[in-house]
């Protein structure tokens, strides 16, 4: 089985940030591998270890994104492709989906894996966009993957329960981080990753120019989330405070 995993470099949501005149300013050095993609890589590795195969990762992003690719290679992926952009084009899911499609259209693979969403934007669109553009059967929000006689068996977390879906290859799937605990690269992995190949590709060589990619959604400004009014904290004798709060829920908050 040949896996392509699309991985994204995202800002660390734990990094301190500030909002200045509607602009979100984050510590530019604190970039990480999107957690959902880490799970996608992990699962691809597990399956290829089990059934044989190859895992290749592709990442669109600034020069710094090569670190994100290294991380995936250190986890065990075999090869990386880095589609280099300046990183500040304000691309949206649609732009990235178009780039990924251009990159993947003439590639050979069985499973195209993506994260169910970007940790920073939570859009959750790119996966099904790419699948549609490449005319691949797909499913989203996978919490488990298996391979059965050449088909991909996906356990999908749906609204009411878990759907077991069988996809013929080639197919696309977007992964939830509830699927597994991504491995933390060990020293051997980190050292090995340095010798693994990373192709750097520019948009032109994919036959696209930035103008083809103009996003039709853009974030015009950021603001702090509406603050909740300060709450009350009750400490002391469990029995008393428990009853007191129960009372307040009835009399003060009247939600009982």
């Amino acid at each position: 089985m040949k896996f392509y995993v699309c991985i994204k470099m995202v800002p660390d949501v734990y990094a301190p940030f500030q909002i200045k005149d509607g602009e979100l300013i984050m510590d530019a050095d604190r970039m990480v591998l999107n957690a959902y993609d880490a799970s996608a890589v992990e699962e691809a590795l597990v399956l290829s270890e089990k059934h044989g195969g190859e895992v290749e990762v592709v990442c669109i992003g600034s020069a710094k994104a090569s670190e994100t690719i290294r991380k995936a290679l250190a986890m065990g992926a075999d090869k990386g492709s880095h589609i280099v952009t300046t990183g500040d084009e304000g691309f949206d899911s649609g732009s990235y989906a178009n780039i990924l499609t251009a990159f993947l259209k003439d590639k050979e693979y069985d499973v195209l894996s993506l994260g169910k969403q970007s940790q920073d934007t939570d859009s959750g669109l790119t996966g099904s966009m790419v699948a549609e553009l490449l005319h691949l059967p797909y499913t989203t929000n996978a919490v488990g993957l298996e391979i059965e006689n050449g088909n991909l068996i996906v356990k999908r977390q749906g609204d009411t329960g878990q759907e077991i879906i069988e996809l013929p290859t080639p197919c696309a799937v977007t992964c939830s981080n509830d699927m597994n605990e991504p491995r933390i690269p060990n020293l051997k992995g980190i050292m090995a990753s340095k010798r693994k190949p990373i192709d750097t590709i520019d948009l032109a060589s994919l036959g696209i120019s930035e103008s083809d990619l103009s996003p039709n959604s853009k974030v015009v400004s950021f603001e702090h989330k509406p603050a909740r009014k300060a709450g009350q904290k009750f400490e002391g004798e469990a029995d008393e405070i428990a009853r007191e709060v129960a009372q307040l829920l009835d009399t003060e908050a009247n939600v009982i």
Binding site: R228, Q232, F234, A238, A242, I256
Partner: peptide
């Protein structure tokens, strides 16, 4: 979690829940 809570009860759930439930039953 207490930063978003309107009512924060600091305590062991095993000790807090029984009286909490009992009181709510009364109110109900």
């Amino acid at each position: 979690i207490f930063e978003v809570a309107d009512y924060g009860i600091v305590g062991d759930l095993y000790k807090v829940l029984p009286p909490f439930i009992e009181e709510l039953k009364k109110l109900k």
